[in-house]
Design a binder for these strands. Structure first.
Lengths: 133, 133
DNA sequence: TAATCATAGATATCATTTGTCTACCATATC
DNA sequence: GATATGGTAGACAAATGATATCTATGATTA
């Protein structure tokens, strides 16, 4: 039971974009070498972030990725769900009982975690890091 | 990002034991057919629960599984961790930075969920089910 | 038109989960 | 103690999902 490495890459990528260059375009190349991943693989992750409306890509020379105007609102949960999808920790249950109490307990516990992740903006972490230096 | 089916089986098994026969021995056979799993597979799951000190097994005729005396204290988290292990959602991080803020945010959000799961006893759910009938 | 950069598809690899099969061990009862 | 009943453990096998890589292609700029 773990978040995927892709989610890890996505979070670091977004933090990097916010932290270092919120305005400029940054190439996948640069993002990839910073995290020691291949560009094509990271590109697939960035595509998901783009489809979720957090970044936009520009092809061609001097192209790359840029944060969308709403970048200051982006939460951890936004990023995680862009990569992991909308799945719940526990979306099946024995006999597919829609009233399964076990499922209800777990889902409601999970909601507590999601609330936390929803309230944590990536920009706040970036500011913390900037403050610490 | 999901809890495994094994965790699902474990929770339902424990609920069944608490609900139906907290005192008697119940064979894996019965538990397995109830959940539509093979006995050997469910047996492996029960072995983990036994190692975690929640149930005990008795071999031989009229044997089976029985709850341990502390059964009223058993929480959802106890069962989940007996199966999933002690892993965290996010125990690696880029460059293995022990001070990674991203990791700290996620781990602290996860703690909120674990607190909830720790506070939910399996016996409470059993009582709810009994009351609803 | 050439250089730069992102994108999508096909494919490969690997780890984990989910199981099955089998032989084996423990206990109760006759 | 033989036998039926019940749990245990190991060696597999299959399915799934994550993690990539390679290649060809499309878009943009200089």
């Amino acid at each position: 039971m773990k978040y995927s490495k892709a989610t890890n890459y996505a979070l670091h990528t977004m933090l990097y974009l916010v932290n270092v260059t919120p305005e400029k375009h940054v190439g996948v190349q640069q993002l990839a070498t910073h995290q020691d991943v291949s560009t094509t693989y990271l590109s697939k992750i960035l595509t998901k972030l783009a489809k979720a409306g957090m970044v936009e890509s520009v092809s061609g020379a001097n192209g790359g990725y840029k944060l969308k105007p709403n970048w200051e609102d982006i939460s951890f949960l936004d990023i995680i769900q862009a990569i992991e999808g909308p799945t719940s920790l526990f979306d099946y249950c024995l006999h597919h009982d829609p009233n399964c109490l076990i499922q209800k307990v777990i889902v409601s516990a999970e909601e507590k975690m999601l609330d936390e992740l929803r309230n944590q903006k990536i920009v706040d972490i970036a500011k913390q890091m900037a403050g610490a230096q």
